[in-house]
C-alpha cells in the first residue's frame, strides 16, 4: 500500500514540446495536492506519468510503502485510481452494467459497491443508457469506483467540473474521508477543491 509519492526532477516532453522540467514534490499519506496551471501546462500529463502511462523524459517517480520503497509496477497495480474526463464509459451500455464492471475490475467488494451506490446517488440513473446521462451524472458514475474499491492514491483530473453544488459538497466529504483513512489525492483543478490541499503550479 502506497504511503508516499515522491517526484524528483521530473521533466515531461510531448512530441517535441517540453511541458515542464525540474518538478519536485512529495505527497504523504493523508495529504491532498491541487495541481494548477494554464491549459496545456502538463497537469494531465503529470497525472498520466504518475499512473505509469507516460514515460518521463527525465527524473524519477518513487513510491514508498509502510515498510520502505515499492517497485513502481507493484505500487501502481491496485494502488491507484485515475479519473479524468476520459471516463471509459461505453455510451451504448446501461449505467449499472458499466458501474459494476468498473468497480469489479478495480477490485470492489459487495459492501464497497453498495456504499458507492449510496454515496454517489446512482440508483436514479442505474437503468439509463450512458448516452442519456448528463455530464454530471456521467462523472458521478465514473467516480463511483473510487468509493467502491479502496485504493490509496487518487489521481483526479478536474473531478468536480461537471458536478452540481450538492454533489460537489458530497464528493468533498468523500475526499476528506479518503484522506482521513490515510489516502492521498493529487488533483488537476482550475477551481479550488472544497478541502484543504497543498498546491503546486505546473509549468509555471
Amino acid at each position: 500500500m502506497i504511503r508516499q509519492v515522491q517526484v524528483e526532477n521530473l521533466a515531461i516532453v510531448r512530441g517535441d514540446r517540453l511541458l515542464f522540467e525540474g518538478l519536485n514534490f512529495s505527497l504523504q499519506s493523508g495529504q491532498a495536492m491541487s495541481l494548477t496551471g494554464r491549459n496545456g501546462a502538463g497537469k494531465t500529463s503529470l497525472l498520466r506519468a504518475i499512473a505509469g502511462f507516460l514515460r518521463p523524459a527525465e527524473g524519477n517517480i518513487h513510491f514508498k510503502g509502510a515498510s520502505g520503497p515499492l517497485e513502481p509496477e507493484e505500487a501502481r497495480a491496485g494502488g491507484l485510481h485515475m479519473a479524468g474526463h476520459q471516463d471509459g464509459l461505453k455510451s451504448n451500455r446501461v449505467a449499472e452494467d458499466e458501474f459494476l464492471f468498473q468497480a469489479r475490475w478495480t477490485g470492489a467488494t459487495p459492501g464497497g459497491i453498495a456504499k458507492a451506490r449510496e454515496a454517489l446517488d446512482l440508483d436514479v440513473i442505474a437503468d439509463l443508457e450512458v448516452r442519456k446521462l448528463s455530464a454530471g451524472q456521467r462523472r458521478r458514475l465514473s467516480l463511483a469506483r473510487l468509493i467502491a474499491s479502496p485504493r490509496p492514491l487518487w489521481l483526479l483530473d478536474e473531478p468536480l467540473a461537471p458536478l452540481d453544488a450538492a454533489h460537489r459538497t458530497a464528493f468533498g466529504l468523500m475526499m476528506q474521508a479518503h484522506l482521513a483513512g490515510g489516502g492521498m489525492i493529487l488533483a488537476a483543478v482550475h477551481d479550488p477543491l472544497p478541502i484543504g490541499t497543498l498546491s503546486l503550479e505546473v509549468g509555471g
Binding site: G78, M82, G88, Q102, W105, T106
Partner: peptide, 15 residues
C-alpha cells in the same frame, strides 16, 4: 473503442 473513450487506461489499472 476502449482507447478512444479512456477505458484502456482503466483496463491497464486492473487486477
Amino acid at each position: 473503442r476502449d482507447y478512444e473513450d479512456g477505458a484502456l487506461d482503466l483496463l491497464t489499472l486492473g487486477p
